[in-house]
Write a protein that binds this DNA or RNA. Sequence first.
RNA 1: GCGGGUGUGGUGAAAUUGGUAGACACGCUGGAUUUAGGAUCCAGUGCCGCGAGGCGUGUGGGUUCGAGUCCCUCCACCCGCACCA
Length: 935
Amino acid sequence: MDYDFQAIEQRWKAQWKADDAYRVDEDTTRPKFYVLDMFPYPSGAGLHVGHPLGYIASDVFARYKRHQGFNVLHPMGYDSFGLPAEQYAIQTGQHPAITTETNINRYREQLEQMGFCYDWTREVRTSDPQYYRWTQWIFGQLFESWYDMEADKARPISDLVAALESDGLGQVEPACDSKWWETLSDEVRAPWGEEFAGKLSAKHWNQCSEADKSQILMAFRLAYLADSEVNWCPALGTVLANDEVKDGLSERGGHPVQRKRMRQWIMRISAYASRLISDLDDLDWTDSIKEAQRNWIGQSQGAEVQFQVAETNQQLDVFTTRPDTIYGVSFMVLAPEHPLVPEITAAAQKDAVEQYQLAASLKSERERQGAGEQKVTGCDTGAFAAHPMTGKPLPIWIADYVLAGYGTGAIMAVPAGDERDWKFAKTFGLPIPPIFEGKDTDETVFTEKTATLCNSESLNGLSSQDGIPAAIAILESKGVGTKQINYRLRDAVFSRQRYWGEPFPICYEDEIPRLIKDKQVTLPKVDAYLPTEEGEPPLARAQKEDWNVFEGDRMEYNTMPGWAGSSWYFLRYMDPHNNSTFCSREKSDYWGQVDLYIGGAEHTTGHLLYSRFWTKFLFDHDWIGFNEPFKQMINQGMILGRSSFVYRIQGTEKFVTFERRKEFQTQRLHVDINFVEGDKLDTDAFRKWRPEYANAEFVLGEDNTYTCGFEVEKMSKSKFNVQTPDDLVERYGADTLRCYEMFLGPLTQHKPWDTQGISGVHNFLRKTHRLFEGATDAKPDEASLRILHKTIKKVTDDLNRHAFNTVISALMIGVNELLDSKGSQSELLQPLAVLLSPVAPHLAEELWDKSGGNGSVMDASWPASEEKWLTADRITYPVSFNGKVRFQLELDATMNPKEVEDVALNHEKTIAQIEGKTIRKVIVVPGRIINIVAV
RNA sequence: GCGGGUGUGGUGAAAUUGGUAGACACGCUGGAUUUAGGAUCCAGUGCCGCGAGGCGUGUGGGUUCGAGUCCCUCCACCCGCACCA
């Protein structure tokens, strides 16, 4: 009988459903294994063949681990809040929940069709109030926490309040902005005096009103409200986090982004910067992702140094990684936006400075970041700072190349040792004090750390390695500087001016935010999904009675960003229906970290960083027992599409075939790959595609056909090159699709999609089916047993190293060889069905059943390869001369190297090869190779 | 510029510890069979050469009895970061 994949797949899918075969429960008698796929956003387009690649790999591994006796958690759910559904709502007025539901149903259908072993009873959706109440709860906990730098962990805000009441800020060191008090209103600060520099006393704290205290605490909360420069995207009508902006454009949609000062909820992720870097070391992730995270966090060690501005009591703080070069400082540079600029600028320079500032502010983010060559620009403020060591006056300039957002927004310029400072000094004729022995820094800048310092008083003769700590010691003893670690990572904006996201459990009284703890706030209904006329977010449209909870004067109008719900979803899968906590400690202790996380590499600096941050936060409060979410991660490569093109002769409705396109002025247009078979265009289908092509004419090739051009590029709707899994499953079955996607090549590599190869894999499954047709209870012969055990070993080894493509090859070889050796005995076939089951579960179940297996193949234990069938009696040695293989020699496996050598040397072909030469050396690698060196 | 990665037949690729380069497939060529079907089977297929043989893993060098694999040089492409003080 033929391989009727449709009947087989339908039958077993139904059976598994009836048996609840994918249901998992906690079971302390078995070891656990947690395999997770990255959370999909259910888009309207459904899945294309690229999406399931990772899902198939994780499913294969989950099934393999189950065979090995692990209790495997393998869940799936949806990151179902997000922009596309909301954009659609804006256009059509349809509630995003409806769009989302429709899309999820489509996803679910596609996922089930491919036979994934997800435990659907654990499905989560971030837009479900039962889920997001816990996202809101975690936000609330972040709001009610501060970061204790000494203990290096988050603690309840009540601890900080207690400390403030008894000792003020004297005994505790909370993570905060270096000048946290500057964000407070003047009334709050007034009693503390002009000279206040952060040492808030208990007395002052206790004198504050409740409103004042709330303002002060805001400076220390892990989720806080603050005015800050944000990335505002007018086209999307919302702010974006740094990781959502690429080259000054929004990652989604590519719209321009501006800087704007806005009051926003912010997450103090910077408090975790150091742990987010150091804990990377123990993760089994690719170096490139770990490196990208280190880069993004951007740790640099150095010193903060204070410079006194002459004739004022103002002080300039700068951060430097090279405090050893302090004697080489000849000027200072501030960012044009630096708050001190207006205060210190000399009267004579006022106009020039203001002009420069204006010019800088008019430049877009993109221009500021300088796409290409950087021109050196700057402007003298006319003010001077005193060198902290020598007291010498240093001119203070402003310039674009100093960024307001990094460090303190000001630098001490050391032209001898810094490329940009050097160029700046050369451009504006500023001095370049030589500070490196034997280096003419007037000629070229010397940026390496290898030189010996000179003209640097007590630092003379020191290398940079010794000079840095020495310089810091001097600075500290003079009270003009401290050792400091600086990070590039900024706190993450957590507000979005959007409708389709988690509402904040926050209300305002006299504009003071208050956390609503006793009731869950759900999304209110609104009359439109657009901002109000006053520019308030859509939620501001909701009337008082539209809110299920309305407290204070008003509710918070912002919603949370997409990454809120996805930062902790892997925990909810462990305990998805818990109504009293986000995830019970008992469950999270059992399931623990994700053992294997599979997904794309596009979440490097967003999701992966944020979920690490939230995990550490939950760990600090002892609500979970681990501080990293994902122990091992594999990033699957993209499956690229093969786009087809037609060539329209400019200004006409004529299309010219690929071969003759050069004869005309043409425009290359994407054409739907559904009209193209083997690069030949179905011209009738093309005419019917769009009204404007109805009268299309074609300039054909010699064979009277229209040939399309092609290119391999990213699969996308707009390129009309999307291949969906649906019709492939229809034509070849889910098992074939699963095997084919695995067979394409290494999981982590990018590869073009090409359906031509699919027949080979389908054929393999048919052959496998045929092998089982002749199942008997007879005793298998030795040769067949060898084939089986070789296959068991290869498949097992390859699965362990996640080499899924060679798993398929190994099974192909095994089946081909067993067909040749007539190895159709149940004793061989049953283990073979188990080997097949991770990659082709439906067929494996059918064959397991046919070959007399008990129960479901899914619960059969993984076969072990037996050593005795792996070692052969005879070995075929390649015999090489000077490294080049000349002939084969079949020898007894028991022969020792000396015996092998003797046989090889006396072989007639050897004698022929070495004729006229002397043998210098003979190398025999037992079981491997014989190499004879002769000259 | 810095960091990470990848270069192997016509194509996707394999070679796990330095040990027969191209397994397994696709495609192609020839043949068989068949109710011309996107079916099946057999043989061949890295390149050059009729052949013996020679040459072959981006380039050039090195280590080694032996290098796709290790070391150095350069090139190409992909990804990330990018005036980061």
